[in-house]
């Protein structure tokens, strides 16, 4: 009689990163769900646009392009320290990783501040007209994502500074990275819909 066939996993690592980590895959799933939500909202915007001769409605000013463009540059720039910070943390270079996270937080903060300024430029509200409802919805949902993602990064950076070095924290930072990329990518979509579409369509 032969011994039962076995597969010994004693020597396998306890954690994986990126696609190997279930939590990273889960975060990607969340990003896809929210991405579909944004895409649907963008589709609703374009669909509603079809009914109008003049868009935005007469008497409504589209916010200037300068601030939104700076805003977009800020979020795209913030992805660079996020990327190298996360890479450093994967290699357990904690100092460099913390610096990357903090730089990302700073640029993210600039992004949020510029967003608030863009918002204050609007001379209409969510209940002014259909255009107003759609723009406020796009800005509102996206800004909620900025706040959520910055809160996540801030909490994780706080743990880093407090000296936490758990594997779970490394995974958390690893997944925080793709969430921020999602915020940036959907920010680019938002720029195209809110700021370019009314000029081009």
């Amino acid at each position: 009689m032969t011994a039962r066939r076995t597969i010994d996993v004693t020597r396998l690592p306890m954690v994986g990163f990126g696609w190997e980590a279930p939590i990273w895959c889960g975060q990607l799933g969340l990003a896809v769900i929210e991405g579909v939500l944004f895409a649907m909202l963008a589709a609703a915007y374009l669909y509603s646009r079809l009914k109008f001769e003049v868009w935005p409605p007469a008497g409504t000013n589209v916010p200037g392009l300068a601030l939104p463009t700076m805003e977009l540059l800020a979020v795209l720039a913030s992805c660079i320290p996020m990327h190298w910070g996360d890479k450093a943390i994967l290699h357990k270079e904690w100092g460099k990783g913390t610096a990357g996270m903090l730089l990302n937080l700073a640029l993210g903060g600039v992004y949020l501040a510029l967003r608030i300024l863009v918002w204050r430029q609007l001379d209409f509200s969510w209940n002014s007209h259909l255009y107003g409802s759609l723009v406020w919805a796009l800005l509102g949902i996206h800004t909620a994502h900025i706040v959520a993602s910055l809160a996540e990064s801030a909490v994780l950076s706080g743990f880093l500074i407090a000296g936490h070095r758990e594997e779970k924290l490394r995974q958390g930072l690893n997944q925080d990275e793709i969430y921020w990329y999602f915020v940036a990518a959907s920010g680019a979509l938002l720029y195209a819909i809110v700021h370019l579409a009314p000029r081009l369509l």
Partner: peptide, 21 residues
């Protein structure tokens, strides 16, 4: 819900919105 509670116009035909959306 926003149309009903905070007065947005996503589906409001009175504001040229398309109920078919």
């Amino acid at each position: 819900l926003a149309d009903r509670t905070v007065g947005t116009h996503f589906f409001n035909p009175g504001e040229t919105a398309d109920p078919l959306l």
